[in-house]
């Protein structure tokens, strides 16, 4: 589904962030990326979603057979890529339901489908909001305006469930959530999991991964993935921190140099 090959990218002002990142994801899989602050996790999410302000200096990203980097951000969404934001922005005066219907219809239009009937949409949004225990009142307000941190994150998952993407990138979705909200958000994500879609979960902490259990865990340090493993790797990281993975990677590199 997603093949990132030796991806290198820098911020427009010049600092190199991604230094040869490679990652392959298949449908039905959940991958977690963990790593210390500043390792480039959020940059990866932004570059995949097509945010401005970065320059890709090398490598490639293939998404469902298309060159992802050639597409505009809205086209990527149309192809089925969704980013759950770490800090969802507020859109003052833009009605939440209207926003979501416009988003859904834009994606349908991109795919050559007809716009959804207003009534069908209302039924759908009501159902999904109830599943996420999201106050329907929030949706008649402006997008994210005056929402609590938890409400914003639940709103992200609501949008995800309505837009039904093929690949979801969750950027620090657990930050700012209390235990209850974490539970609700995770359940929302787990409900969406199926054999045809995939999730890339970016997080600092292992605690999210006890709720959204990954198939693979990757450790990202200094712009690349230096270690990959199964879900048990997350526990090991929680216990031992990141430094040992770095040492291990360095040792590996040194050994190679000696050989």
């Amino acid at each position: 589904m997603l093949e990132i090959n030796n991806l290198q990218a820098k911020i427009d002002d010049g600092k190199q962030i991604l230094k040869g990142l490679t990652l392959k994801m298949n449908p039905g899989e959940v991958h977690a990326i963990m790593g210390p602050n500043g390792s480039g996790k959020s940059t990866l999410a932004n570059i995949l979603a097509g945010k401005g302000g970065y320059e890709v200096t090398g490598g490639s990203v293939d998404f469902l057979g298309k060159d992802l980097l050639e597409l505009e951000a809205d086209e990527r969404a149309g192809e089925g890529l969704f980013l759950a934001f770490q800090y969802p922005v507020e859109l003052p005066g833009v009605n939440g339901t209207y926003f979501l219907r416009t988003a859904l219809n834009s994606i349908r239009k991109y795919r050559g489908e007809k716009p959804i009937e207003v009534r069908d949409f209302q039924v759908m949004i009501k159902e999904k909001a109830a599943e996420l225990q999201l106050d329907p009142q929030l949706l008649s307000r402006a997008v994210n305006e005056g929402f609590s941190g938890g409400e914003k994150k639940r709103n992200e998952v609501l949008q995800m469930s309505i837009l039904n993407p093929k690949l979801c990138v969750l950027d620090e979705t657990d930050s700012g959530l209390d235990i209850d909200a974490l539970q609700i958000v995770s359940e929302g994500v787990n409900r969406l999991r199926n054999k045809d879609n995939a999730f890339l979960v970016i997080t600092h902490y292992q605690r999210l991964l006890t709720h959204i259990v990954p198939d693979f865990v990757h450790v990202m340090v200094d712009g690349k993935i230096i270690k990959s493993g199964g879900k048990e790797l997350a526990f090991e990281l929680e216990e031992r921190g990141y430094s040992w993975t770095r040492d291990e990677a360095n040792a590996g590199a040194n050994n190679q140099a000696h050989l």
């Binding site: 097509g50 401005g52 809205d74 859109l91 833009v94 926003f99």
Partner: peptide, 22 residues
């Protein structure tokens, strides 16, 4: 970017944001 990421083309997004403002 937030609007784009949800599939809304930039032109529509600007309209939406300006209209919300007004």
């Amino acid at each position: 970017f937030y609007c784009n990421q949800r599939g809304i083309p930039t032109e529509d997004a600007v309209s939406m944001i300006v209209h919300g403002f007004c």
